[in-house]
Design a protein around this nucleic acid. Structure first.
Length: 1129
RNA sequence: AGUCCCUUAGCUCAGUUGGUUAGAGCGCUACACUGAUAAUGUAGAGGUCCGCAGUUCAAAUCUGCGAGGGACUACCA
């Protein structure tokens, strides 16, 4: 026996991780775990690309632990799980951090710094923290191939993205439209919401506001001369009005009164809640002194009277006359000028009716679109639809007397501004035409361009869209085939989102990203979408031949050559491709559309772009399923991010789901449930955490504490608990095993002791173990890691450690190396080894160490790591539910006896004579008989007596079985309970005799059988009794003198064992004992001499009058102390 | 504003198809057990199962309304 089980000095999980990590590196364990698996049995996993320009947080540990668990699990199941890492490299955060770094702004790009230089800086910055990320990956034990990651800025990647986009383009699912965006006419550029939110952008300004009167077309509800009142702070948008919006649930009134400027009699519609606000000042409610008829223009008071009330929904569909008829929408003008409804309408200010100008407001555009209301777009000289205001911020020619005027005076050069702004002119015009109810100055906060300091407009700007609206029903259908964890996220949040999905706005007016590969003629009549480098090269060639370009920028690119170097001969980024001018079929020059693609399209393309499909890896993607993930996992915040874009692209292009199983995990909050942020200082630093507690404890805590999709309240005390409770117990169980297996030289070299030759407790724990394998496998299979972890933890702490080992201790450390002992070793070994495999996906480091500690001696596996083994196969024959039930009885009964002892203050060390258990059915009798010895030894009692109720001494209790009776006689349940509650002991005996009960309740015949009742014993008169559920136990508490002495002997054994331990003796050392003679204990010792000696490995025990050597004094029981000397032989 | 999720002991969480007295761990108190244990056992204290209404013989569980918390979307992640 040369190799021994490693005996560790204390459990240090961070060190374990370090040691195992070294081993993995040395042995290439990760590569092995992939390469040794069957190539034809792939399990496809997609790694969502993190952005490496920010530091990782503790939530990344959570997300990656989930990914890792299932990849490792599937590996154990024999799948080949390749995991290609990736980096998300484009997008606004990168650009912002570069701008900050260089001290420049978006405006400087192209002037102070070239786009080329700027993009180079972005490229450099984006990978700033790769090392940190790689370290986190390693430290937390996340296995992913970092050696060859996909990077979204690489030309190969972009080429695949372009290919996808062209596929979508070819399906006629792309179009150029517009969205309403903040726009600065002075700067001539759109602004991002980020720019709008910069401090100082919102400034208080005084604007001319108008409450306009929109004349309703008469109908059943509304009389002649009825006007809708709508308030606006931007009168310049009134010519572009195409609808009015009411709140469907808001109450409106019809008010009869007069226009203060013209004196005309008018009927006004406005929200009831705003009468006071609008009809104030001059306006007074008509009364006896001032009737409606009395008014004439010039009077100081204007009477009004409320005529009618209605709900907003009643007004929907009513049409009205255009307020300022300069132009009509070029499309569907007949649908314009009607009342629609929207939930965003409030009665906080204004009139409760909102003027809608779809071309100049985001909400406006949305609500108009929902109701099919056309925006005020007219056709320009080139037949392109444009709004009534041009890009300089001036009214178009259609606006007659207003044509050419800036809509805001601020846009004029200093000194050039007219006295009266457009807003004022419009207000005057409306007043004169009986179209203005009220004109007022109003101070409000309005966004300004941070660069020019001029007010911005919300303006329709060109964007490219994917027609999601056309494919969303198919997307919803495909979504139904995806297994979402949790289900509700897929069906609810994601499903609903799909149903209501808007077209996908792809355009981003930034610099660092994938350019939209569309080239277009100036008049927009011809365009081309480029889908590959080859195509671009060919098109460039045509352009060169047409004389539009001097040379072909892709001249040195060799078509079909997939070498990296070949793909570095050009650059697909904006700085490069914007210089390319292509030629249209009609010979016109085509320029690239200036925008970039939404970065979400980048990451959504990764299933194929990571493999440069279809230019490379066609076989893998087309025939081996690598274009479709078996499994992905990300945070729930990705529902409308990555999950969505993956799904959209795969659905549109391939008509299949991008992933079959998906876990969307919740957030990691601090222990008070507050989101972690640097600002609050409550963020947990992942590296510090990992080095303090170790990856295993952190991962185990995260996974077992809450379901992944619930938010995790991250509490360090929780990790400590896991460390102590789960890993501590597992470690100690192994330590116990190793200690004695080394003493006995157990190396699992003996023949396996057949199950039927092993004792009941061995078969029990093996049965439990196999149940565990089955349950854990199922939990992993349905992507429930929390369940798996909790099951394993329960087995380790409750079954294996606190029951099996506890009850079997003496089998390990007493007696010869018999078959029983070998069985015990084999059993415990099997448990430990199986646990190491089952828990390895969650706790990869510790599990590997445990596995190797065991395997190093036994050599049962040829694999050098637990992660290279196979998931254990359930031995269904070993599962014996009856046995598990029996043991559960033993556990319960033991616990009850211990509780009785406690109640009577009798130490467990004091043996007692007898317990009695009433049995009411033979099944129970058989079961408890089988585990009798275990119970007796656990509770330190000599006999167990089964009490059959022959004499009728047992007091019985009866409980109706609600489940079975409820089904039959639900209505009479209460009556039945009332009856059975009154039954006496005799009634219960009678029930037994008659094998049921029949009767009548409210005229209905009732027939109850024995299975409708549960009969249990309540009490055994004259005994100390504990009852729990259906079990009852009685304890004989008389202590005879023999028992008393045995108790004293056990007390001695306990003290001597403790002494041995304290003196640092090895478990195998033999000792000799001297005890000072004392009448009170002599008998107890002499009667149990053999017992004491064999328990404590004492060669001799002498009772002496005077003891020699260093004595120890202790109290045996109240008032009796003993003196003892222990010496090593 | 919309969509979705969550709410059970001081804390973290279980709670099967509705069914008997709603559980576990941590923490607290006391006592015990232990030649594996950083463990463990027993007992005690601790509950308006967020609220209201409904369905039902029976609701933590199903339905509706509401409250509180959270996430996402409201255009350049």
């Amino acid at each position: 026996m040369s190799v021994k089980y490693r005996e560790h000095k204390g459990l240090n999980l961070p060190n374990v991780a370090k040691e195992v990590l070294e081993k993995w590196k040395l042995e290439n364990t990760f590569e092995e775990s992939v390469n040794t698996r069957d190539e034809n049995k792939p399990f496809v996993f997609f790694e969502g690309p993190p952005s490496a320009n920010g530091m990782p947080g503790i939530h990344h540990v959570m997300g990656r632990a989930i990914k890792d668990i299932f990849c490792r699990y599937k590996t154990l199941k024999g799948y080949r799980v390749e995991r290609k890492a990736g980096w998300d490299t484009h997008g606004l955060p990168v650009e912002l951090s570069v701008e900050k770094e260089l001290g420049i702004t978006k405006e400087d790009i192209g002037s102070k710094i070239t786009i080329e230089e700027y993009n180079a800086a972005c490229k450099k910055t984006v990978m700033k923290y790769t090392d940190v990320w790689n370290k986190l990956t390693e430290d937390m034990g996340y296995w992913v191939d970092m050696s060859d990651p996909y990077i979204t800025y690489e030309n190969k990647y972009i080429e695949s993205v372009w290919w996808l986009l062209k596929e979508i383009y070819n399906k006629d699912l792309m179009y150029k439209g517009y969205t309403i965006q903040p726009y600065s006419p002075k700067a001539g550029t759109g602004l991002s919401s980020h720019e709008i939110n910069q401090p100082g952008c919102y400034q208080d300004v005084t604007d001319t506001t108008v409450v306009a009167q929109f004349k309703a077309n008469t109908n059943d509800v509304l009389p002649e001369n009825t006007y809708f009142l709508a308030w606006t702070t931007t009168p310049w948008t009134l010519p572009s009005n195409t609808a009015l919006c009411v709140g469907p649930k808001i109450e409106y009134v019809l008010v009869k009164t007069f226009n203060q400027y013209t004196g005309d009699s008018v009927n006004l519609v406005l929200a009831k809640a705003l009468i006071g606000k609008q009809l104030s000042g001059k306006y007074v409610l008509a009364n006896e002194d001032l009737t409606i008829e009395d008014f004439s223009l010039g009077d100081k008071k204007i009477p009004y009277a409320v005529e009618k009330e209605f709900l907003g929904s009643d007004l929907v569909g009513v049409t009205y006359e255009q307020l300022l008829p300069y132009a009509l929408p070029h499309e569907n003008p007949e649908k314009a000028f009607q009342v629609i409804s929207g939930n965003f309408v409030t009665t906080e200010d204004g009139t409760g009716i909102v003027h809608i100008a779809p071309t100049f407001g985001q909400d406006d555009a949305q609500v108009a679109k929902d109701f099919g209301i056309p925006p005020m777009l007219v056709l320009d000289e080139n037949e392109n639809p444009v709004p009534l205001i041009n890009l300089q911020g001036k009214f178009r020619p259609e606006m007659d007397e207003f044509a050419g005027l800036y809509v805001k005076n601020e846009y004029y050069k200093d000194g050039d501004a007219p006295d009266k702004s457009v807003d004022v002119l419009i207000a005057i015009k409306l007043k004169e035409e009986n179209k203005a109810f009220k004109v007022e100055k109003y101070v409000h906060s309005y966004p300004h361009c941070w660069r020019t300091d001029k007010p911005i407009l919300y303006y329709p700007l060109d964007s490219w869209f994917i027609k999601i609206s056309e494919v969303k029903s198919r997307m919803a259908e495909i979504n139904k085939t995806i297994n979402w964890k949790p289900k509700a996220t897929g069906e609810g949040r994601f499903g609903n989102w799909l149903e209501g999905a808007n077209d996908w706005n792809l355009s981003r007016s930034r610099f660092w990203g994938i350019p939209i590969p569309i080239w277009r003629t100036e008049d927009g009549t011809e365009q081309i979408c480029i889908g590959s480098a080859e195509e671009l090269k060919n098109e460039c060639q045509k352009a060169v031949e047409a004389g539009l370009m001097d040379n072909n920028p892709l001249a040195s690119f060799e078509v079909g050559n997939m070498d990296k170097s070949n793909y570095e001969t050009f650059d697909f980024h904006k700085n490069y491709v914007d210089a390319i001018i292509l030629v249209s079929p009609n010979g016109k020059p085509m320029k690239r559309e200036a925008d970039l693609i939404d970065v979400w399209f980048d990451s959504g393309s990764m299933p194929i772009a990571q493999r440069h499909y279809p230019f490379e890896n066609q076989e893998l993607v087309d025939n081996k399923g690598f274009g479709q993930a078996d499994f992905i996992a990300e945070g729930v915040d990705q529902t409308r991010g990555w999950f969505y874009t993956l799904h959209a692209i795969a659905s549109i292009v391939f008509d299949r789901p991008a992933y079959k199983n998906v876990i969307s995990n919740g957030l990691v909050l601090d222990k008070n449930g507050v989101k972690m942020s640097k600002r609050l200082g409550n963020a947990v630093e992942p590296f510090e955490n990992l080095s303090t507690y170790g990856a295993d404890a952190t991962r185990w805590y995260m996974i077992t504490n809450a379901q992944p999709w619930d938010n995790l309240k991250f509490d360090l005390d929780g990790i400590t608990e896991v460390q102590r409770k789960f890993f501590g117990t597992l470690y100690n169980t192994y330590g116990f095993f190793a200690l004695y297996a080394n003493v006995d030289g157990f190396s699992y070299s003996e023949e396996e002791v057949p199950l039927n030759k092993r004792p009941e407790i061995d078969r029990w724990v093996i049965s439990k173990l196999n149940s565990l394998i089955q349950d854990v496998e199922e939990a992993y299979e349905i992507y429930e890691p929390t369940k798996a972890g909790r099951l394993i933890q329960g087995f380790v702490t409750d079954q294996m450690s606190n029951w099996y080992v506890r009850l079997c201790r003496r089998r390990f450390w007493r007696g010869d190396y018999t078959e029983d002992k070998i069985a015990a070793y084999q059993t415990l070994y099997t448990c430990l080894e199986t646990v190491s495999i089952l828990s390895s996906p969650i706790a990869p480091f510790y599990a590997d160490q445990l596995f190797n500690d065991l395997n190093q001696v036994s050599k049962r596996h040829s694999e050098k790591s637990v992660h290279l083994t196979n998931f254990p196969i359930v031995d269904k024959n070993a599962i014996d539910k009856d046995l598990e039930e029996r043991m559960s009885i033993a556990q319960k009964v033991s616990s009850m006896v211990l509780s009785l002892r406690k109640k009577e203050n009798i130490k467990v060390r004091q043996p007692l004579q007898k317990i009695m258990v009433p049995v009411l059915d033979q099944d129970f009798a058989r079961r408890i008989e089988a585990v009798k010895d275990l119970i007796l030894s656990e509770v330190n009692v000599k006999e167990l007596e089964l009490l059959e109720d022959t004499a009728g001494v047992l007091v019985k209790k009866i409980k109706p079985n609600f489940k079975t009776i409820g089904k039959k006689y639900g209505k009479h349940m209460k009556a039945i309970i009332a009856i059975t509650n009154q039954w006496s002991q005799d009634d219960i005996i009678l029930l037994d005799k008659n094998n049921g009960w029949t009767g009548e309740i409210e005229g209905d015949p009732i027939a109850l059988e024995m299975e409708d009742f549960e009969i249990s014993t309540d009490d055994i008169p004259g005994w100390l009794v504990a009852t729990e559920g259906n079990y009852t136990v009685a304890l004989d508490e008389t202590i005879s003198s023999a028992l008393k002495n045995e108790g004293i002997a056990r007390e001695f054994v306990n003290r001597i064992q403790n002494l041995r331990k304290e003196s640092g003796l090895e478990v195998t050392d033999r000792i000799q004992l001297q005890i000072k003679s004392d009448d009170k204990i002599n008998l107890a010792i002499n009667d149990n001499l053999n017992y004491i000696c064999s328990e404590t490995l004492a060669n001799s025990l002498d009772l002496v009058e005077k003891i020699q050597g260093e004595k120890v004094v202790f109290e045996v029981e109240n008032g009796v102390s003993a003196e003892l000397v222990l010496s090593k032989v």
